[in-house]
Design a protein around this nucleic acid. Structure first.
Lengths: 235, 235
DNA sequence: CGCGGCTTTGATGTTCATCAAGTAAAGTGG
DNA sequence: CCACTTTACTTGATGAACATCAAAGCCGCG
C-alpha cells in the first residue's frame, strides 16, 4: 500500500482558485500573485505517502482535492489513524508552527492534489497581514478541534458504536450519500477506532445480517439509517 | 464537587509577570500596559467551575497558577476528561477563534488563577502585531497538539497501560516527583482514560500488591518506576 | 497459474464493565 | 461534639465485550 512519492508539479492560477478564501482570504492581489508564483502543487496517487513522521517541515500544506489519512506508527509498528479528511476540512498539518519535523504521516486515500507554500512565506504573511493571521488561526483551530472531537467520540463508544459512527462519518461527512466506496481497508478502520480488524469485520457482518447495511467489498450501502444512528448514539 | 463560581478580582502588573513571555511576548510596552489595564484576573478555589460548555466566549484565558481539568459531558451525563494541565501548558481554550461558545468545560483541580483578556482585544493585537500573532499561533498549536497526542497515547493502551501512563504523567509532567498528591478522584482518572472507575481502582490495588506503587488515599508514591514504565510501554 | 495480501468466520481465552456489598472518609445538621 | 448522610473507595463475582489465533476463501497481480 505504501508507494514511493512520485510528484509531478502543476500550476494553477491562485487568483481564481476556489480554495482561495479558505486560507488566502484578506490578501492584496499582489500578495496572492506572490503566493501563486512561489507555491508548488503536488499530485499524489491513491496510496502514496505525502510525508512521513520525522520529515523536516518546509511547506505549509493544504489539501486541494482528494482525500487523505493522517496517522502515526506505534513503536510496535502498527498504525494509529488520527483522522481522514477532505479538502476544506484539512488545512495544513497540525504542527507547522511549533515544530520543525512532522509528528504524523500523511497519505493519499484517493488521488489528491496538495498545495504547498514555503513556510517562511506564510510566516512573512502573518507578520505583515493581521487579517490573514486571524483567518489562519481560525482555520487551524477548526482543523485541530475536529481531530480532538473525533478522538473523544471514538473513545466514548464500544465496538459496534464506533463502527456505526465511522460508517455515518463516511456517509455524512465525506461522501454525502447512503451509498459509497470505502476509501480504506477494514484494517485501516480498525486502526482509526482502535479495535482489531477481525472484530471490525465481524461487526460489518452483523450489520449486514441485521439489514442495516449492504456491504460488497468496499462498496457500502446504508439501508437502515435510523438503526445505525441508534447504535452509534448509545454504543 | 461542583461549586458555584465565586471570583474575586485581583490585579497584577503585567510588565513584570513571569508569564508575560508565554503569550505577550513581542508587544510594545504601551500594549502591555493596555493589556494590563483591560485584563481581569479571576481566582478559583479547588473544585470550582471556570466555565461550562455552551457559555458564550468573552475572554481569551490562560492559566497563571494552579491546575485545571478540561472536560465535556456526554448526552448520558458522564464526564469525558480531555486533559489535565498546568500553567504554560494551557493557553486559553481550544476554540476561541472559531466559535462563539465553549465546546468544553473547565474546572479548577487546585486553587487556580486565570488571566482573562477580552477576546476583541486579542484580535486587535493580532491584526496590529504580526510577531504577537505568530507567537500566539505557536502556543495554541502546542496546546492543541498535546491534547491530540494524549488522546492517541490513551487509545493505544489497555487498562493497565493507561493507568500506568496516567501515573507517570502526573509524576513526570505535573509534579516532577515520585511522591505526589493526586489532584483527582479515581473516577476522574477513569473519565480521562475511558475506563470504569472500579477497574481503575482494581489496577491501583494490583500495582500496590506488586510493589509498584504505594497508595494511601490520594497520596501516591511510585516505588518501582521501571516496572511502571514497562507496563505503560507495552500495556 | 501461483503467490501474497485482504477478508471472513469460528473457537478460545483474556480483558473489561457491571452489579452488589461493604468500608472508610468527609461533610451536615442537631 | 456526635449522629447522620453522603460520597469516595474497595473487593469479589458474574457475564459481556473484545483480542488473538487459526483456517479457509477471495481477489488482484505478476
Amino acid at each position: 500500500m505504501v508507494v514511493e512519492a512520485n510528484t509531478p508539479k502543476r500550476k494553477c492560477n491562485c487568483l481564481s482558485c476556489e480554495l482561495r478564501n479558505l486560507v488566502f482570504t484578506n490578501l492584496e492581489e499582489e500578495d496572492v500573485r506572490r503566493v501563486c508564483e512561489s507555491k508548488e502543487e503536488f499530485s499524489y496517487a491513491k496510496g502514496e505517502i505525502i510525508h512521513s513522521e520525522g520529515d523536516p517541515i518546509h511547506y505549509f500544506k493544504y489539501l486541494k482535492t482528494g482525500l487523505v489519512k493522517l496517522f502515526r506508527l506505534t513503536p510496535e509498528g502498527d498504525e494509529q489513524v488520527i483522522t481522514i479528511t477532505r479538502p476544506f476540512e484539512f488545512v495544513s498539518n497540525t504542527n507547522v508552527f511549533h515544530e520543525d519535523k512532522y509528528s504524523y504521516s500523511l497519505s493519499a486515500l484517493e488521488d489528491s492534489v496538495v498545495c504547498c507554500v514555503r513556510i517562511e512565506f506564510i510566516k512573512e504573511l502573518i507578520l505583515r497581514n493581521g487579517k490573514f493571521a486571524l483567518n489562519l488561526i481560525s482555520s487551524l483551530s477548526r482543523t485541530m478541534e475536529s481531530i480532538i472531537s473525533l478522538g473523544l467520540e471514538i473513545r466514548k463508544r464500544n465496538l459496534a458504536g464506533r463502527t456505526a459512527f465511522v460508517l455515518l462519518y463516511f456517509s455524512n461527512e465525506i461522501y454525502h450519500s447512503r451509498i459509497f466506496e470505502l476509501p480504506v481497508s477494514r484494517k485501516e478502520i480498525a486502526d482509526l477506532i482502535s479495535m482489531s480488524s477481525a472484530n471490525v469485520i465481524r461487526t460489518f457482518s452483523e450489520f449486514r445480517r441485521d439489514g442495516i447495511i449492504r456491504a460488497n467489498g468496499r462498496t457500502i450501502e446504508i439501508t437502515d439509517m435510523n438503526k445505525l444512528e441508534v447504535i452509534s448514539r448509545r454504543g
